[in-house]
Nucleic acid binder design. Structure first.
Length: 681
RNA sequence: GGGGGUGUAGCUCAGUUGGUUAGAGCAGGGAACUCAUAAUUCCUUUGUCGCGGGUUCAAGUCCUGCCACCCCUACCA
């Protein structure tokens, strides 16, 4: 019976690029979705960019562009990265969409109607310069308990926890300004009122992994403490949706983000003439969320609460995965292990990462580790040495023989592998990809000896044994094709290469049950390259270099230069290089400088251009410079200016200086090593 | 401090409801082969199944104490 399944991955935040840690989740989900489609279920894979919140606002400001431009750009990057890694969504939306706004309104109204919303004024730090309220992580100051300096807004290295309003000498990390305490009204969801529902939802059914259910019951739903109200609003300015019945307040990003699942599905429905209710309000549709353990409680408490209140279908299953470590350590920018999808892609095939993750993924909430040597060994010996090699070693003969009209005796290999399909499918279904990969490799291990023992290379030399050769080719390629089918959810491109070789697309899991016979075979082409540890080292090196460069940029002092000078004197009309070269700037040494008694502003300078060349120039810098201090220094002059007769004598050029005049005049200087007479280009 | 998890060959891990001499892949050693991407095939070494008790005819598997590591959470009496 065909199931109808809606699948989501967590919405990536539009604040940064996709890295290999994110990819664990998208690859995991994509494998599961491809598997469902392959066995013939109706399956929809929905995702979107998560675009709202303070972080986006701040970043847009820093980059001097609108939030809309920023998130459009990030969305493009994200979708490009996903496509590179063969993560294939049925629809990819954005939380900053009309559709999402509409569903936010709808769910909000339901929460109001259920009397779950309350208001309360809370004190929060406010950055008067950046004109925004500050989340805890945007404040640093001295710990009120131990006195440690430069601690984050909510906890200290000494172990103390506190409220950011208790920090001594707090500073905003955005502007460096001292934040002030401001009171603002926030809206809250009274989660405690949903306790009976949540308890029941967590206890009954198998929507959650056992360890997750235990964790929630033990921690959030413990009898002795009520569930805390959920702070669901932020005062403006805030990049997000304004709350319709609370002007000036915006929904906190975690309110509208999961609603994006529904909104994005709705967009797909509109485009495909389907009804949203069939997907989100139907008991015959399964809803599967794939998320990381860090956002467990949003998806297992708030989200079911929202769905329940607004009358949507609850998740059938929340699949929670652990974090990625690299080389046994947490990923970090400084060691280069936080590798961007884009960087990975330059040095290694995305398929290899998909396979490696597949061998590591289980239904449990466990962290997984990417070790360089392990990655290289596993991928090379499993995929290249066993799977691809199976096709490769008969590939050369196959073009001339084609496949036999009747599948020959193979000692039960094909039949055995066909039967193993059920166990492999069950492993995929339960999210135990690690087990699935192990089972598939067992088949690959059994297949290679067949070729070895059949000795096709001897048959090739004997004209009387061409039928036997064709039989060996038929067996080897069919066994290979079974592997390609079983691996298709993980390695979609290998399935395609198998199509290209055998001329029969892989579209269904059931194809693994029936051998392909009597068809021609295309010329064999290499399907996969081995990877070297150095390739992975290079991507780590590049990531590290990128991180260092970024850190260097961020450590640059910030210059808060006023825009007044430019406004006072706007840029002149554009000129060409030809216009520019007409002006001959020269480095000159001040040989003498003296007051001009009759003049208010002028000094009389004698400028040397090297050798005997000198120019006499009157410069309006009297208020700013003492003549005796000018003698000997280098200046920049316009040397080909038409001489002008002044009351005090002939001025044979101009000295370059900036500033509005009076005491605020600043002569141009040249760096050490410049020589009088040199032209300025 | 509380909750959860893990500990099996050098490495990554399987070991179903307790039931024969504890397994696989990779790595190591030896040989063969040459169709194949120095790939493959055959043979082969290695384990106090973290440590100590207990239950049982029988324990890697169940109970218990300890040790180590990991994850979550916290300073709450």
């Amino acid at each position: 019976m065909t199931r109808r399944i809606l699948v989501t991955s967590a919405l990536p935040y539009a604040n940064g690029p996709i890295h290999i840690g994110h990819l664990v989740e998208y690859i995991q989900t994509d494998i599961w979705v491809r598997f469902q489609k392959l066995i013939g279920n109706r399956c929809l894979y929905i995702c979107a960019d998560d675009t709202h919140g303070t972080a986006i606002m701040i970043r847009a400001k820093k980059e001097n562009r609108s939030e809309e431009e920023l998130i459009a750009d990030m969305s493009r990057q994200h979708q490009r990265d996903f496509a590179d890694f063969h993560v294939e969504f049925d629809h990819y939306g954005s939380t900053n969409s009309d559709s999402n706004r509409e569903y936010c309104h709808q769910i909000w109204k339901a929460l109001r109607d259920a009397d779950l919303i309350t208001e309360r004024a809370i004190d929060q730090l406010y950055d008067p310069e950046a004109e925004t309220f500050l989340a805890d992580r945007f404040v640093r100051g001295t710990c009120p308990v131990s006195g440690h300096k430069d601690q984050p807004g909510d906890n200290c290295v000494c172990g103390a926890t506190y409220s950011p309003t208790e920090l001594i000498d707090p500073k905003s990390t955005l502007s460096g300004a001292t934040p002030e305490i401001r009171t603002a009204v926030h809206l809250f969801v009274e989660l405690e009122k949903l306790r009976p529902f949540l308890t029941q939802w967590i206890d009954n059914g198998d929507a959650l992994q056992k360890e997750t259910a235990n964790y929630l019951k033990g921690y959030f739903l413990a009898e002795d403490k009520p569930l805390k109200d959920w702070d669901i609003s932020r005062p403006g300015p805030y990049f997000g949706f304004e709350i319709p019945d609370s002007p000036g307040n915006y929904w906190y990003v975690w309110f509208d983000a999961p609603i994006g699942y529904i909104a994005s599905t709705a967009e797909w429905c509109t485009a495909n003439g389907e009804s949203i209710d069939d997907w989100w309000r139907s008991e015959s549709t399964e809803i599967h969320h794939f998320i990381g353990k860090d956002i467990t409680y949003f998806h297992t408490l708030f989200w079911p609460g929202m769905l329940h209140t607004a009358g949507f279908q609850l998740p059938t299953k929340v699949h929670i995965h652990g974090f990625l470590n690299v080389g046994g350590e947490k990923m970090s920018k400084s060691t280069g292990t936080l590798i961007a999808a884009e960087t990975y892609q330059k040095y290694a095939e995305p398929d290899l990462l998909r396979y490696f993750y597949a061998t590591k993924l289980t239904p449990r909430v466990e962290d997984l580790d990417l070790g360089i040597d392990e990655f290289v060994d596993k991928v090379n010996s499993d995929l290249v040495g066993k799977v691809v090699n199976l096709a490769s070693r008969v590939g050369k003969f196959a073009k001339s023989t084609g496949l036999s009209p009747i599948y020959p005796d193979d000692g039960g290999l094909f039949q055995n592998a066909a039967q193993a399909g059920d166990a492999i499918a069950a492993a995929y279904e339960s999210g135990d990809f690690s087990r699935a990969m192990r089972l598939i490799m067992e088949l690959a291990d059994a297949a290679n000896p067949f070729v070895e023992h059949a000795k096709p290379w001897e048959m090739k030399k004997d004209a009387d044994r061409q039928d036997e050769l064709r039989d060996v080719v038929t067996v080897a390629l069919n066994l290979f094709r079974q592997l390609a089918i079983y691996l298709a959810p993980v390695l979609p491109s290998l399935a395609q290469k198998c199509d290209a070789l055998l001329g029969e697309p892989i579209t269904s899991w059931q194809q693994s049950k029936t051998p392909l016979v009597g068809t021609p075979v295309e010329k064999f082409k290499r399907m996969m390259e081995r990877i070297q540890p150095e390739d992975l080292q290079k991507m780590i090196d590049e990531s590290k270099a990128n991180a260092d460069a970024e850190a260097a940029t961020e450590n640059l002092p910030t210059f808060n230069d006023s825009d007044a000078p430019l406004k006072d004197e706007p840029l002149a009309d554009e000129i060409t290089i030809d216009d520019f070269v007409k002006v001959d700037f020269r480095v000159a040494r001040v040989l003498s400088a003296e007051h001009v008694p009759e003049a208010n502003k002028l000094l009389k300078l004698t400028l040397g251009l090297g050798g005997d060349e000198t120019r006499q120039v009157f410069a309006g810098i009297k208020a700013a410079y003492q003549p005796e201090k000018l003698v000997g220094r280098l200046v920049v002059m316009v040397a080909n200016l038409k001489p002008r007769k002044m009351r005090f004598g002939l001025s044979e050029g101009m000295v370059c200086a900036s500033g509005p005049g009076g005491e605020d005049v600043f002569l141009l200087a040249v760096d050490e090593g410049a020589l009088p007479g040199q032209r300025v280009h």
